[in-house]
Design a binder for these strands. Structure first.
Length: 737
DNA sequence: GCTTGCGGTATTTTT
DNA sequence: TACCGCAAGC
């Protein structure tokens, strides 16, 4: 019993209750920072230690690959080995595995492809053109998300149609049906289909379901508040009659409603599983008292939640700092000032600047660059969605599945090989006539093709054949390398400009990823499946740098100091047309998630005036900000003669308001710029005044002055667009122009 | 088939 | 304001 005792010794009473729960459904309501991952992993370890479960009986699902990996690692180190035969992974990975293993029962083609968001839109585009639906009525983008919402809610095209009210909804239903046909004929499934497919597979194949139910006796689901109907149904099916289901979550942190998440899944857990035990983890091990109380004051106003109380185990701490900025630039300056002040005691990696929308990151980036503070922007353009990467992946997909139509349509055009619209139409028509997939039609070289197109298509076929032969026995990385070389994909990006270099680096990274997959015994198709389910979140996380991130991307993380910026009415409760009350609750949860990321310091800022999409918005403070009890607040604005709690009653028009420039003047005291030693010409790294350079944010400029050497090097640069800046070349990505 | 310029459009984004 | 996608020209 030793091992078990050791495990329990590290848990508080509530955590122990959850970990030691035996059979039957269990809901763990895990408030922010209450040790939810710990409970999940220790519970698995305890089940094994107590002999209640065998490793292969464990099925643990999460939403992100990252969370899954973390869970797997922690369990491994607890039990001293991997869960052989068990499954720890994402919902989608589990579903995909199921569908691949049972493609026939699921009525899917043997090597079905996975259509990503981009391909979904392309399909919709085709469908809409064919049905002659003007994009003024509905954009492919909007259609995609409507269809996705339907799928998340387990509705097929027919169900959607029967529920449709009004022409607009009927149109979506019609498109849905056509989209589904098109997907089917392209032998592809989309992300949502994976879940739907898994659900319908289990619903229609009793024997299979029973075998899974008896095999995976122990189910554990993380972030249950984010499950959609399809996921909840899948869990229900896998649980069988007497589910040993552990659901862990916190309705206060449900922030993916727009993506189909149903808070009701967790709120009504006991209704769905009447025999469920509920354990509430009420001790917070992350945040200092004032932070927790401030966050509680915000979330308490929500109605769709279980009332609960979190107590801080960290103890007292600094009050929450509030600052009203003149505009977004001033806000960024304030944040950078404070970061500078914190740096004595907190390393950059422990600091986060969190905002509602990605577009808010700009001023912060600019300010960080100016101050030479190391930072990373989380998110942005994602690796796997980059053009060059997706082009290469399209080829790889064709090697594994020669009739992958979506991949074919993409690959045949890159690099350009003289096959245009006319040639493509011939191929599509020939395919339709012969009743074969387009790639097969291409292999047969229809006579309609012009001699030139014929040659080009022929060469494309030869290339694929050659690579396919190679793929049969060479490791994935080797295949990728040869592909990049032979296809001319790599050669497209031969120049030395910043763009091409970045693209080449991305392609190198793809080769590296393939090599790494081979090490894990994945073949090419396994690699592709993995890549299809991978996101940027899985590659990131490097260096000791301040994180600039959206609130969504910050979920699950914690930082010593958090700046929650842009707390304005309309921005943090983000409002746009058609945003109802229900969304206000979600926005509140978002603010709550942001606040509870903080361990020791929390800063809330908002800007009096803000430029959004080129338009000047006058900001009123977020109602969430006003919910924070004043006794918890250290108001820095008051020191500057303004009071965010008083002087900003709603002002529909800015009549009589001072101009942004006034605020700026009032706020920007003398700012020292050039510190650091000066050095004369000839710099070891080759920097010299007069040299023309390029910067990702500031554009092109010329070096005025070079200061210091090595890590201390600072360059004073005059940018054409952005004016004079002082930069550290090792941090700011500079390119000689 | 590739480049250039214009206009429309703008959240969040675990897979 | 900034980007992206599309349509017209080379």
């Amino acid at each position: 019993m030793n091992r078990l005792e050791a495990l329990l010794a590290e848990l508080d009473d509530d955590q122990k209750l959850a970990v030691m729960h035996g059979e039957g459904p269990l809901l763990v309501v895990a408030g922010a920072g209450s040790g939810k991952t710990r409970v999940l992993t220790y519970r698995i370890a305890a089940l094994l230690a107590r002999g209640l479960a065998q490793p292969h009986e464990i099925l643990a699902v999460t939403f992100t690959n990252k969370a899954a990996r973390e869970m797997a690692e922690r369990v491994e180190s607890l039990v001293g080995g991997s869960l052989r035969g068990g499954f720890v992974g994402t919902f989608h990975r589990f579903a995909l595995k199921l569908l691949r293993n049972h493609a026939r029962e699921a009525e899917l083609p043997e090597r079905f492809a996975i259509a990503d968001e981009d391909e979904q839109r392309q399909i919709l585009d085709r469908v809409m053109k064919r049905l002659e639906i003007p994009s003024t009525r509905l954009t492919p983008r909007a259609a995609r998300s409507r269809i996705s919402a339907a799928k998340n809610a387990l509705l097929g095209p027919k169900e959607l149609e029967s529920r449709a009210r009004g022409d607009a909804e009927r149109l979506v239903a019609e498109l849905y049906a056509a989209y589904q046909d098109e997907l089917r004929s392209a032998a592809a499934v989309d992300f949502d289909d994976m879940l739907l497919g898994a659900v319908s597979l289990l619903e229609h194949h009793d024997a299979l379901r029973k075998s899974l139910v008896s095999r995976f006796r122990w189910l554990l689901v993380d972030e249950y508040q984010d499950t959609n109907l399809a996921q909840a149904r899948l869990v229900r099916l896998l649980g069988g009659k007497t589910p040993n289901l552990t659901a862990v979550g916190d309705e206060d942190q449900s922030i993916y409603r727009w993506r189909g998440a149903e808070v009701e899944n967790i709120l009504h857990f006991e209704a769905a599983y009447p025999t469920a035990h509920v354990v509430t983890l009420g001790r917070n091990y992350r945040s200092a008292e004032p932070i927790l109380r401030a966050a509680a004051a915000v979330i308490e106003r929500n109605s769709r939640r279980r009332p609960k109380k979190l107590s801080s185990e960290v103890g007292s701490g600094a009050p929450v700092t509030v600052y009203l900025a003149a505009d977004e630039a001033d806000e960024a300056r304030f944040v950078a000032d404070e970061i500078g002040r914190l740096r004595g005691s907190v390393s950059p990696g422990e600091i986060a600047v969190l905002f509602r929308v990605n577009a808010q990151s700009r001023p912060f980036e600019a300010e960080m660059v100016r101050r030479a503070l190391p930072y990373v922007v989380v998110g942005g353009t994602r690796f796997w969605e980059r053009k060059e990467v997706r082009d290469a992946l399209a080829y790889l997909r064709l090697l594994v599945a020669p009739d992958d139509v979506l991949a074919f349509r993409r690959a045949i055009h890159v690099p350009a090989r003289g096959i245009g619209q006319v040639a493509m139409e011939h191929l599509e028509r020939a395919a339709a006539t012969w009743g074969v997939p387009v790639p097969e039609a291409a292999r047969r070289l229809p006579v309609e093709l012009s001699p030139r197109a014929r040659l080009a298509v022929g060469e494309f076929n030869t290339l694929l054949g050659e690579l396919r032969a190679l793929a049969a026995d060479a490791p994935a990385a080797e295949v990728v390398r040869r592909l990049l070389d032979r296809s001319g994909l790599a050669a497209q990006y031969g120049s030395e400009d910043e763009d091409d270099r970045a693209r080449r680096a991305n392609l190198d990274q793809l080769v590296a990823a393939a090599a790494e997959a081979t090490e894990r015994d994945l073949d090419l198709s396994g690699f592709l499946d993995e890549v299809a389910l991978l996101t940027d979140a899985d590659v990131r996380r490097e260096g000791d740098a301040v994180q600039l991130s959206t609130l969504h991307a910050a979920k699950g993380l914690e930082f010593a100091a958090v700046f929650l910026v842009g707390m304005e009415d309309g921005l943090l409760p983000l409002r746009r047309e058609g945003n109802g009350e229900a969304d206000e609750e979600e926005e509140r949860r978002l603010a709550y998630v942001g606040m509870t990321r903080a361990q020791r310091r929390l800063f809330l800022t908002f800007a009096r005036v803000r430029r959004v999409n080129g338009q000047l918005l006058s900001g009123r403070p977020s109602p969430f900000l006003l919910d924070v009890p004043r006794e918890l607040v250290d108001d820095r604005t008051a020191a500057a003669g303004r009071d965010p709690f008083r002087s900003h009653a709603p002002q529909p028009h800015r009549h009589g308001a001072r101009s942004p420039a006034d605020f700026r003047e009032e706020h920007s005291g003398p700012r020292s710029t050039d510190h650091g030693p000066r050095s004369s010409s000839r710099h070891p790294d080759g920097w010299r005044p007069g040299l023309k350079i390029r910067h990702a944010t500031f554009g092109s400029g010329v070096i005025l002055q070079v200061q210091g050497t090595g890590a201390q090097t600072r360059l004073v640069i005059f940018f054409d667009r952005a004016g004079r800046k002082t930069l550290i070349p090792s941090l700011a990505k500079l390119e000689r122009a």
